[in-house]
Simulated scan of single mutants.
Amino acid sequence: MTALSLLELVRVTQDTDAGTALNNARDLAAHAEKCGYKRVWVAEHHNMEGIASAATSIVIAHIASGTKTIRVGAGGIMLPNHAPYIIAEQFGTLARLYPGRIDLGLGRAPGTDQIAIRAMRRSPAAAEQFPQDVLELQAFFAPAGPDQRIIAVPAAGTDVPLWILGSSNFGAMLAAEFGLPYAFASHFAPELLLPALEIYRSRFKPSEQLDRPYAMAGINVIAAHTDAEAKRLATTQQMSFADLFSGRRGLSKPPIDDIETYWSAHEKAQAMHMLARSVVGSPETVRKGLEAFIDETGVDEVMIVSDVYEHQARLRSVELIAEAMKQ
């Protein structure tokens, strides 16, 4: 059976604060663990009032401390924002604290705007060094050599598994060249999903970490007891995307009865294009939609985004998704 995993957005809502969002993320991960999910990832975002995962490695430690077996990781660390040595130290520490449970997905985008890039004292040109930075990071996780002068303590020897994340063909080519698992962000960038998967699989070169291609794809899934209930819950995510395009970025909003009263025709077109890879509905609707997605893509693992406003409703969504796929 295709593995199910979760992307945790650590959303701050109009009814919560960042502390509550972080604790809800940990609670969701524990619930996902009981439901049989394979891993839960958090992503690095900066200068976004409604997302509390900027200090990604700390968030991962918080989630891992509240779980026992589920893998926890970054989906991803935006490597151009950091020195590979520092990321190796951080994730090597996580690997020592939670052995065999830490993943490190790497992205080339900054995950923020130009103002935040300047605040981080990073050059926009840093993305051009991404392939070299991935190799450097990988080397820091390998066992240290006898004459090695610079060692990432305590990362050396942890062999933290790396993933390449992407929303274009570049990441697919890089993951294939380096022999690493590949995760495509089709939950917000669906257009190049199938071409990228084909490039990754056809060009894959085996490595010490991976002997054959392993592909994951993101998809938005919101489940409730009825299609109508799920569609209403989905308006929270739809409003978030509309706000993104209009410059109204802020806290996550509660669902509404009629999304057509909220967004303009232009915002709707943009949002629905980005949310094209979505399944919203009852458990039966979700099962059929996910099975169709898996059949179409042939992915080894599905990374689910279940962006539901109220915490208990989100727990139910995650549980219903897992139950639907076990049938």
Score class of each variant (00 low, 15 high):
Met78Thr: 07
Leu22Lys: 07
Leu174Val: 02
Glu177Ile: 01
Ser65Gln: 13
Arg277Lys: 10
Met272Ala: 08
Leu193Asp: 10
Gly250Val: 08
Ala32Met: 05
Ala55Lys: 04
Ile117Met: 13
Ala64Asp: 01
Arg249Gly: 11
Gly289Gln: 09
Glu296Asn: 13
Ala18Met: 05
Phe91His: 04
Ala139Gln: 14
Asp17Ser: 12
Val42His: 05
Gln327Glu: 14
Gly145Glu: 14
Leu6Cys: 11
Leu251Met: 11
Leu194Met: 15
Val72Ala: 11
Ala144Leu: 06
Pro154Val: 09
Tyr309Thr: 11
Ala29Thr: 06
Gly107Gln: 04
Arg212Pro: 05
Ile321Ala: 03
Met216Glu: 10
Gln270Thr: 08
Ala83Trp: 00
Leu4Gln: 10
Ile164Asp: 00
Ala224Asp: 12
Phe245Glu: 11
Asn81His: 01
Ala189Cys: 09
Ile102Phe: 02
Ser246Asn: 14
Arg203Trp: 05
Ala156Cys: 10
Pro255Met: 01
Glu208Ala: 14
Ala313Asn: 14
Asp227Ile: 00
Ala217Tyr: 04
Ala21Val: 07
Ala18Cys: 09
Phe170Arg: 11
Gly289Cys: 07
Glu49Met: 12
Ile259His: 09
Phe130Val: 04
Leu106Phe: 01
Cys35Ser: 13
His31Asp: 13
Ala223Lys: 06
Gly281Arg: 00
Gly145His: 06
Gly166Leu: 02
Ile117Gln: 11
Ile199Tyr: 04
Leu22Ile: 15
Glu136Gly: 14
Gly111Arg: 01
Leu94Gln: 06
Trp163Ser: 08
Ser168Trp: 05
Lys288Thr: 15
Val12Ile: 15
Leu94Asn: 08
Ala95Leu: 01
Ser240Ile: 08
Asp295Ser: 14
Ile164Glu: 03
Asp258Asn: 15
Val134Arg: 01
Tyr85Ser: 06
Lys68Leu: 04
Glu284Ser: 09
Gly92Pro: 07
Leu97Thr: 06
Val40Pro: 05
Glu128Thr: 12
Ser168Asp: 12
Ser264Leu: 02
Ser207Gln: 09
Ile150Phe: 13
Arg149Asp: 11
His45Asp: 06
Met1Ala: 15
Ala324Glu: 07
Asp295Gln: 14
Ile219Tyr: 03
Pro84Tyr: 00
Leu162Asp: 06
Leu22Thr: 08
Val12Tyr: 04
Lys38Pro: 07
Leu210Trp: 03
Ala189Asp: 10
Asn169Pro: 08
Ala119Gly: 07
Leu162Asn: 06
Asp258Ile: 00
Pro213Gly: 11
Val302Gly: 10
Phe184Thr: 08
Gln132Arg: 10
Ala292Asp: 15
Thr13Ser: 15
Ala224Asn: 02
Ser202Phe: 00
Leu210Ser: 12
Gly73Phe: 00
Arg11Met: 15
Ala52Gln: 04
Ile219Ser: 04
Asp307Trp: 00
Asp103Gln: 03
Phe178Lys: 13
Leu251Gly: 13
Arg122Phe: 01
Ile321Lys: 04
Asp159Cys: 13
Ile259Arg: 07
Phe140Val: 03
Gly289Tyr: 03
Ala242Gly: 15
Ser240Asn: 13
Ile219Glu: 02
Gly281Thr: 02
Gly92His: 05
Asn24Gln: 15
His266Arg: 12
Glu198Asn: 13
Ser202Leu: 07
Gln327Phe: 10
Leu104Ile: 03
Gln129Cys: 03
Pro110Leu: 00
Tyr182Cys: 06
Lys288Phe: 11
Thr158Pro: 08
His82Phe: 14
Val280Trp: 03
Leu79Phe: 03
Ser186Asp: 05
Ile117Asn: 06
Ala109Gln: 12
